[in-house]
């Protein structure tokens, strides 16, 4: 997993609430056995017309935001299906950080497992950031995970909270499985204890 340190980018505003993972990547694109290539179909319905051409009204199609690595969006982002294809698609497209008032639980976990940073902010900070994002190409935002700070285009700083373990894993690009396998003896012990009391 890639390390996440500091990110400076234009932030794309997508002010919709309850964006579900079907909207992020529809089920018909899940028939892959790979993690890569899903960016092509990210936000498929919002992004493309029926004939496959770009929809001009979608933020990530607009010249100012085509290369955005930060997405600023509405509450309960990532609700619905557990598909990890949703963070895979976002990351494959180039999004490395999503900022919203709240996220659905499974999507939240899935994103961190892939090195994508999700930041929850209170409504007043969201309003400010959404305004900044809507200013387009000249309004870059810097996200500093180590310092837990977002610096807006005017130099204003917003602090954010994050679980210490998730932060540690992201900063160091750590693989969860490798970490857990170091606790193999504890898993063995647990299994032995459970076997002794559960006879079924």
């Amino acid at each position: 997993m890639d390390k996440f340190g500091k990110l400076t980018s234009v932030a794309a505003p997508l002010p919709l609430i309850n964006i579900d993972t079907d909207m992020i990547i529809p089920a018909r694109f899940l028939k892959t056995i790979k993690r890569t290539g899903l960016g092509a179909d990210l936000f498929s319905t919002l992004r493309f017309n029926e004939d496959g051409s770009d929809r001009d009204d979608f933020v990530l199609n607009q010249p100012a935001y085509k290369n955005a690595e930060i997405l600023v969006t509405g509450e309960n982002f990532g609700c619905g299906s557990s598909r990890e294809h949703a963070p895979w698609a976002l990351m494959d497209f180039g999004i490395k950080c999503v900022i919203a008032p709240s996220f659905a639980d499974i999507f939240y976990n899935n994103s961190f497992k892939n090195g994508m940073l999700l930041i929850k902010l209170p409504p007043e900070d969201m309003t400010k950031l959404m305004d900044d994002a809507e200013r387009g190409a000249n309004a870059t935002v810097t996200v500093d995970l180590e310092a837990q700070e977002i610096t807006g285009p005017d130099g204003g700083v917003i602090k954010f909270e994050i679980n210490a373990f998730k932060k540690h894993c992201l900063l160091n690009g750590l693989d969860d499985i490798g970490l857990t396998l170091q606790k193999d003896d504890k898993i063995d012990d647990f299994e032995a204890r459970q076997k002794a009391i559960q006879l079924w």
Partner: peptide
């Protein structure tokens, strides 16, 4: 019982555990 993503599927296959809050 709860739903998980593919990284966690791999974690369970390999370790029969999950890191949870």
């Amino acid at each position: 019982a709860f739903g998980i993503g593919t990284s966690e599927v791999e974690h369970v296959l390999a370790t029969q555990t999950l890191l949870l809050t």
